[in-house]
């Protein structure tokens, strides 16, 4: 349990001093210590090379238990086992970054922020403690005075605004958490999805557009290395951003990537794309889309199948 005094000044110039007690959840403790290991040299016994000359230390115990790929590579017989080096430079560097972050945090970071954070390691480690307790929020809001509630809400709002410009604030997000933390999340989602006072529409859209391909790459790499959870997260992000992506000029590129990087039976992203086409029949007229379809026969075929839903092909996977 931690007790921390908070000094805070309201808009009316009222000074509030309060102390917040928080009880740490065991799950959080685990997540925190995992996060501390992320990128750390401590106990590290392997290296992952990726991108253009990047490399990151990692831990066999963690990597191998999360992904069968790493287990097979390191369990003996092959060269990787003796050198402790795995070269992933053939994969998209950004996607590898996301994957490693996920393995240690069980989270899918906001792609853009993560990119900006990549260089400053110390800030990441600060983040895990710095913002953590706050987003945890008071556990039992009904035990607290209304004035405290008001103050806390105000405080949260400000922190949130500040954090958007600084660094990832979402590290503490968790669906089960009541009160403040959830509120923070809702406001953020609303902002990104549609209007949102805090988020200028243009900013949100541009970031979402650039992230679209990343989601696809992360999804692919998760599939390649057998990380089902990461697939779920990537797909959710992709789905959330899809309305914006569809309007974006990069949509053809994204569609192409989806169908190039997934196998036919993996319906996670493919179905979303096909549904998008169904919902947005005007896409049919788009020249860039047509050009893309030309190069992406799988998608073309599936769209065609969509037109004839009542003529069943053999089996559900309808392979050739």
């Amino acid at each position: 349990m931690t007790v921390r005094p908070i000094q805070y000044e309201t808009v009316d110039g009222l000074k509030v001093v309060m102390s917040v007690r928080t009880w740490k959840r065991p799950d959080d403790e685990l997540m925190e210590s995992m996060a501390k290991l992320y990128g750390s040299e401590d106990y590290a016994d392997m290296t992952i090379k990726y991108g253009k000359g990047k490399q990151r230390s990692a831990h066999r115990a963690i990597m191998c238990s999360r992904s069968e790929f790493f287990k097979c590579a390191l369990k003996g017989g092959f060269k990787e086992a003796s050198t402790g080096e795995i070269d992933l430079s053939a994969d998209d560097a950004e996607a590898v970054d996301h994957m490693l972050y996920y393995i240690y945090h069980n989270k899918y970071p906001d792609p853009k922020r993560c990119t900006s954070n990549r260089e400053s390691k110390h800030r990441e480690s600060q983040m895990s403690c710095g913002d953590y307790w706050l987003l945890e929020g008071p556990r039992e809001p009904h035990n607290m005075s209304p004035s405290f509630m008001a103050a806390a809400a105000e405080y949260n709002r400000r922190r949130e605004l500040a954090s958007q410009h600084e660094h990832s604030a979402e590290s503490g997000l968790n669906d089960e958490k009541p009160s403040a933390s959830r509120r923070v999340r809702f406001s953020e989602n609303e902002g990104r999805d549609v209007k949102g006072e805090e988020h200028p529409e243009t900013g949100a859209e541009s970031s979402a557009q650039s992230e679209g391909v990343t989601h696809v790459h992360v999804y692919a790499i998760a599939e390649k290395y057998g990380l089902e959870g990461l697939k779920t997260l990537a797909r959710q992000r992709f789905k959330d951003d899809l309305p914006i992506l569809m309007k974006s000029s990069k949509f053809p590129e994204i569609c192409h990537a989806v169908f190039e990087t997934t196998i036919q039976t993996d319906r996670g992203l493919r179905d979303l794309v096909v549904q998008a086409f169904r919902a947005q029949l005007e896409l049919h007229k788009d020249k860039k889309i047509r050009r893309m379809l030309n190069k992406t026969p799988d998608l073309a075929l599936e769209l065609y199948d969509m037109l004839c839903p009542f003529v069943p092909l053999h089996g559900s996977g309808h392979r050739s």
Partner: peptide, 21 residues
């Protein structure tokens, strides 16, 4: 005689072959 083989490389090839049906 496999000690010099890179697992990642072999895996990637096998993966690609499968991905491409």
């Amino acid at each position: 005689n496999a000690s010099q083989l890179l697992y990642e490389e072999l895996y990637r090839h096998a993966y690609q072959v499968v991905l491409k049906k």
